[in-house]
């Protein structure tokens, strides 16, 4: 349970995933379940796709019509609670996740894929690593994840 071990339950997770029709394109998933005073995801979105409003304690709402999955909100989220997901085909999903550890993965490497409980669940392929000045030390890692883990995968751990 989120409150006792930091792992959101299935219901919470699904509540943030959009309809399947949207996810065929990259979309931002905001895993921010509490009303905390924070709004950079909203203010940083160039497409005005994340709504928070005047009261910055409001939980973010993503407008999946507007969201392009660009990933800017991912490295702008102070809680590292946003990732981009896309159902690529019948076999793979593509994720863009924030990463603030060293060493950074390198394109082409295979890493362990980890779920929200911190367990290794699969192998994932590193497709792209970006870390520009603008990202301010939060790297954006693009990974290819087996489709069955689309609702479970959250981050990567150690090169295989």
């Amino acid at each position: 349970m989120l409150n006792t071990n930091g792992v959101p339950d299935k219901k919470q997770i699904f509540s943030r995933f959009p309809d399947k029709k949207y996810i065929l394109k990259p979309k931002a998933i905001t895993e921010c379940y509490e009303e905390i005073p924070c709004n950079p995801c909203s203010t940083s979105c160039p497409f005005d796709a994340i709504y928070i409003g005047e009261d910055i304690n409001t939980a973010p709402i993503v407008d999946f019509e507007k969201c392009t999955g660009c990933g800017i909100c991912v490295y702008n989220c102070p809680g590292l609670a946003i990732f981009i997901v896309q159902e690529l085909d019948n076999e793979n999903a593509r994720f863009k996740i924030p990463y603030e550890l060293i060493p950074l993965p390198i394109k082409g490497e295979t890493w362990s894929g980890v779920n929200r409980a911190g367990e290794v669940i699969t192998k994932v392929l590193i497709e792209k690593v970006s870390l520009t000045e603008k990202q301010d030390k939060t790297a954006l890692i693009q990974v290819l994840v087996p489709i069955e883990f689309i609702n479970d995968f959250i981050t990567i751990r150690s090169k295989l």
Binding site: G6, E34, G118, T155
Partner: peptide, 23 residues
């Protein structure tokens, strides 16, 4: 306490790195 004290986004961040939060 029986519940995590801080923001859950911080807790989730640790948990996915394999750190157990023992309430």
């Amino acid at each position: 306490s029986s519940e995590i004290g801080g923001y859950k986004v911080h807790a989730s961040k640790l948990k996915r790195l394999g750190v157990d939060i023992k309430t």
